[in-house]
């Protein structure tokens, strides 16, 4: 029993550290990729190729002076960054990030908790992140923050619907809510017949995949749906009044959210940790998973470098009038074919 607790704790610590490092290096990745897309070098002074930049940023943010405006609601103001940070990291509890393996004669599963309703858990937890944003905006006592928070809550609630419906198709096909089983179902050739393609749900659910991709951008408040922060309008949106480590909590939460939804996307549509040569080298599975997550991240960053921002009302119109009906349509079609 004790051994099991110890083992689980080590796994949790390793995953959390990996996620936080991933967040830190996503910021570097974003700055580098966007930099090169914009004919700039990106950060390149701290360490070789700027590899120590996240470390320097972190140190700087920790040592920054804490500025707290006089009219904040103190408790919620302090609690908000934590509330938005924790759910972002919590998602990783159910995501399988590698093929089950045996180490030193012990079975080792590359998932923290193989929950049988993993998909629902992911949804429940990612939805919680909104509270952090709303509370931050409300407790800051600033109009810009408040507007950011209002926009954000409306946006996230609207897109939650599309987000949820976009993967219902996958769940109907798979007939399971466990993320581990979902990955296993994506093994083998496509539909059991087409040998040169893997049985990933991106091929059987192309529309669902596109909808998922669009909705999660809005869900994570990334460009071109970055209404809540829209720096050219709302200065910085809900975290305008935050400084120092409290600000960086929001920052880490944003990137953790990005990695989380990327992981979910990779798991649901791109076959999770699948890839060639897994029988001889099972550890490759983790690498495949990271590569797939990276592809998602790169796509987000690419979008940010390319597109202007939507307007708030257009964003809501897109969510309710385009994405929502399309997602419903997709669900209907999928259900129809499954019954057949």
């Amino acid at each position: 029993m004790l051994e099991m607790i110890l083992f689980a704790s080590i796994k949790v610590i390793v995953v959390v550290i990996a996620v936080l490092t991933g967040c830190a290096y996503s910021t570097l990745l974003e700055r580098k990729v966007v930099g090169h897309m914009q004919h700039r070098m990106g950060p390149n002074t701290a360490g070789p190729y700027g590899l120590l930049t996240p470390l320097a940023d972190g140190l700087k943010l920790i040592f920054k002076e804490e500025i707290r405006p006089a009219n904040v609601e103190k408790i919620t103001y302090l609690l908000a960054p934590v509330i938005s940070f924790v759910p972002a990291v919590l998602t990783f509890a159910v995501i399988p990030f590698g093929k089950d393996n045996t180490f030193f004669g012990k079975d080792f599963t590359f998932v923290l908790s193989d929950l049988n309703v993993g998909v629902l858990f992911v949804f429940a937890v990612t939805s919680l992140g909104i509270y952090g944003i709303v509370l931050a905006g409300w407790s800051s006592g600033s109009k810009y923050s408040m507007m950011g928070a209002v926009r954000s809550s409306a946006q996230m609630i609207s897109y939650e619907v599309g987000y949820g419906l976009s993967i219902v198709g996958v769940i109907i096909i798979a007939n399971t809510l466990s993320l581990r089983e979902l990955v296993e179902l994506q093994m083998g050739p496509l539909w059991g017949t087409i040998t040169f393609l893997p049985n990933w749900y991106i091929f059987s659910q192309p529309l669902g995949f596109i909808l998922f991709l669009t909705c999660v951008i809005a869900e994570t408040n990334r460009a071109p749906f970055d209404m809540p922060e829209a720096e050219s309008e709302l200065v910085a949106g809900y975290h305008t009044e935050y400084s120092s480590m409290k600000f960086s909590m929001f920052f880490i939460a944003e990137y953790a959210n990005m990695i989380a939804v990327s992981s979910v996307g990779a798991t649901l549509f791109l076959g999770g940790w699948h890839g060639p040569f897994l029988d001889s080298m099972p550890m490759l599975s983790v690498l495949y998973f990271v590569i797939k997550v990276f592809l998602f991240m790169f796509f987000y960053i690419w979008l940010r470098a390319t597109f202007p921002r939507f307007r708030y009302d257009q964003l809501m119109a897109l969510g309710w009038k385009v994405l929502f009906p399309l997602a419903l349509f997709n669900t209907l079609i999928t259900a129809f074919f499954v019954i057949l």
Binding site: D226, S232, T306, P308
Partner: peptide, 8 residues
Amino acid sequence: ALDLGAMS
């Protein structure tokens, strides 16, 4: 364009 969010 930057005001509209197209920072590149």
